[in-house]
Design a protein around this nucleic acid. Structure first.
Lengths: 232, 232
DNA sequence: TTGGCGTGTTAAAAATGGTTAAGTTTTCTG
DNA sequence: CAGAAAACTTAACCATTTTTAACACGCCAA
């Protein structure tokens, strides 16, 4: 049960990025380095990856750290965020916490301090940790997002790509709102009218699949999004 | 509507302690001030008190902050701890996180920063406590806000998004005034003329639903708002 | 007491969503 | 590579939810 933790590091300064990456790897973490916010978002949104913590530089080209943080928050309300900033400015800190930062550290910082903060965050989120992405129970139904497979009464159902991406988002936000626009951007990469209807079609498909467990419901929040309700 | 959060503040510097206490009280927190670690421990251990967060100065007579933190951890594995320290020394920080700190802030710090960190901690602990699918009794009627469901005589009534949001607000302010503008901002995100009329329409809908129990009444307070009256 | 503004209520209009099925594109497979 | 199968999108139609409109009534201050 060694399961080492995975960190997504978004840092545009190549030297600093590589330095941090190898330091954290030496400490036993799995580290993916993204050189800007857009790449980081795509990595986060890529089904193949699961991250336990995001370390985001505030100042980056393409998409700054705060914007990235907010977008990520729409997809996953719980994943811990740690911001790196050159400025120690008050407004920046406040903005960071507003986005839902779990911590905030100003450059320059020592590697040990970063490590201490990372460990502190992971320690306190550990208790509430979701299963390490092998098998997830949604009500009575077993779901394996990595294999994109649902275990139903009448056997194993292989999900299609879009079914799986959407269900994964819903499950990550179980009993919480999944924002419509955020889901469209995450699954369809865009949020125009027809994609919207396409998503509705997929919601209908998922409802059919999940109706085997009557305690599961995909509830619509009018004009805002969907909520995967699992009665306890 | 807002059950305000309680903070236990352990700080031996009388000036700083009182300053922080009154600042946090002004921000809506309940604050108990203890002038050393021993008193703080006794306050915490006194079952009459419930604290949502402990703010502990590291350097205190009788019992230092870290010791206090460890002792408290033995009683409660989850209660959030935030340490205040004059030193920014690395070892101190590490020790703090080792004790299970949720955050660590070095003096001098601004009040805003402390507040931001407190709110950040409370926000993320709130997430883990939320999602309780509780059943609330409104008079004789059972209401499940998370499922947006009312249990009426002739079966279960599924509420629409807006019905649920508005009813939830009313119930949270049961027998107290729900301010009109506040409700509009909370449910409609805006408070222009037409939203106002939309809200009136929803009040009418809710009245119809709730008239099953004659002890329940949604009363209008002219020009100010509504009050959900439940006679005992 | 009266006029204006706020509220109660119902109904029609507009927006959003649920679902099925027909089209289109992509992927698989021989 | 062609044909079939699967995946995905678009269309259509209907249902539900929300907003807007309209009119009646009530409260309250001048």
């Amino acid at each position: 049960m060694k399961e080492n933790k995975n960190i997504l590091l978004a840092e545009d300064d190549e030297n600093l990025g590589k330095l941090l990456k190898s330091y954290l790897q030496a400490k036993g973490f799995g580290v993916e380095l993204a050189r800007n916010g857009k790449i980081a978002y795509e990595l986060f949104n890529n089904t193949k990856h699961h991250f336990d913590l995001l370390v985001l530089d505030v100042m980056m080209p393409e998409m700054d750290g705060f914007t990235l943080g907010s977008e990520v928050r729409l997809l996953d309300r719980k994943v811990p965020l740690l911001f790196l900033s050159a400025k120690s400015m008050k407004e920046d800190k406040l903005k960071g916490f507003d986005v839902g930062a779990d911590d905030y550290i100003t450059k320059p910082f020592s590697m040990e301090e970063l490590l201490a903060r990372i460990n502190a965050i992971l320690k306190r989120t550990e208790l509430h940790q979701k299963n390490v992405q092998e098998k997830i129970h949604v009500g009575k139904i077993e779901y394996e997002p990595e294999l994109s497979v649902l275990h139903l009464n009448d056997g194993v159902k292989k999900l299609t790509t879009k079914e799986n991406m959407l269900l994964r988002l819903l499950v990550q936000n179980q009993n919480e709102l999944l924002d419509r626009q955020a889901a469209l951007r995450a699954v369809w990469g865009d949020d125009n009218y027809f994609n919207g209807r396409s998503m509705d079609v997929y919601i209908a498909k998922l409802r059919k699949l999940l109706k085997e467990d009557s305690n599961i419901e995909i509830m619509n929040v009018h004009g805002v999004g969907f909520k995967l309700l699992v009665k306890q």
